[in-house]
């Protein structure tokens, strides 16, 4: 367990010391959301209508943005092979790195989301569920993302591929995430989509590390 936390702490530390670079995902999130009123027009009714979807799609894309560096730096500088030779199984390493990724990208997105929701004139009775759905959904995105990042870590131009691999797999997260928010706004109830998201999180916690570890082992050969 302590090795697990060591890796989490180190990844967060390196991200924080990376300075403004670690905030790229959040800044992207804000800018991408701000583009929608510019693209579809500032009409408040329309923005209210599309706000949950826009916020979720942009959160999804922002998460993709930082995936490429998840394993790549450690792979290219030789730390990944040291980590693989350590005591902690690679599956647990993947979990630790996914957790660190979520803390450095997912969590800031969640904290920004209400402000952006206000700017999109989203209905206030959806705010709590928006945060909650992101809280359950973005860890799934980080976990699915580890698979894409691990499969492309040994490819020189892997970064472009990750989105192609990961976005189709993320479709259900998007659907149930937005579904929960809209359920809360339109009074249909957000409970069942949130429960499905939670089940998805459990499944991703179990399956994604196995797939990612297999891919990393191959990359380290």
């Amino acid at each position: 367990m302590s090795i697990f936390l060591t890796i989490v702490r180190r990844d967060i530390g390196l991200a924080v010391r990376g300075g403004i670079g670690s905030l790229v995902a959040v800044v992207f999130f804000i800018i991408a959301v701000a583009l929608f009123p510019l693209g579809v027009g500032p009409e408040l009714n329309l923005l209210t209508r599309i706000a949950p979807g826009v916020l979720w799609v942009c959160a999804l894309l922002a998460t993709m943005l930082s995936l490429d560096s998840l394993f790549r730096e450690d792979y290219e500088d030789g730390n990944l092979e040291q980590i693989a030779l350590g005591v902690l199984p690679l599956e647990a390493v993947v979990l630790a790195k996914a957790l660190a990724h979520w803390i450095t990208t997912g969590l800031p997105l969640i904290l920004c989301a209400p402000v952006l929701a206000v700017m999109l004139n989203m209905s206030t009775n959806g705010f709590a569920v928006l945060m909650l759905s992101l809280l359950i959904g973005t860890p799934i995105l980080s976990l699915i993302g580890t698979v894409g990042a691990a499969l492309t870590v040994s490819l020189r131009r892997g970064g472009v591929l990750i989105a192609l691999l990961v976005l189709p797999l993320s479709v259900p997260v998007l659907i149930f995430g937005v579904g929960a928010v809209e359920g809360a706004i339109f009074g249909l109830g957000a409970r069942s989509p949130l429960m499905i998201l939670a089940a998805g999180l459990v499944a991703a916690l179990v399956l994604a590390p196995v797939a990612s570890a297999a891919a990393l082992k191959m990359a380290l050969e």
Binding site: I3, R17, G86
Partner: peptide, 22 residues
């Protein structure tokens, strides 16, 4: 590959590798 991170100190590198081994 030396496994050197630009932002981490020499002592931090050695400590991290020792932690990895338990």
């Amino acid at each position: 590959l030396d496994g050197i991170k630009p932002a981490a100190t020499v002592a931090e590198h050695v400590a991290f590798w020792a932690h990895l081994r338990g």
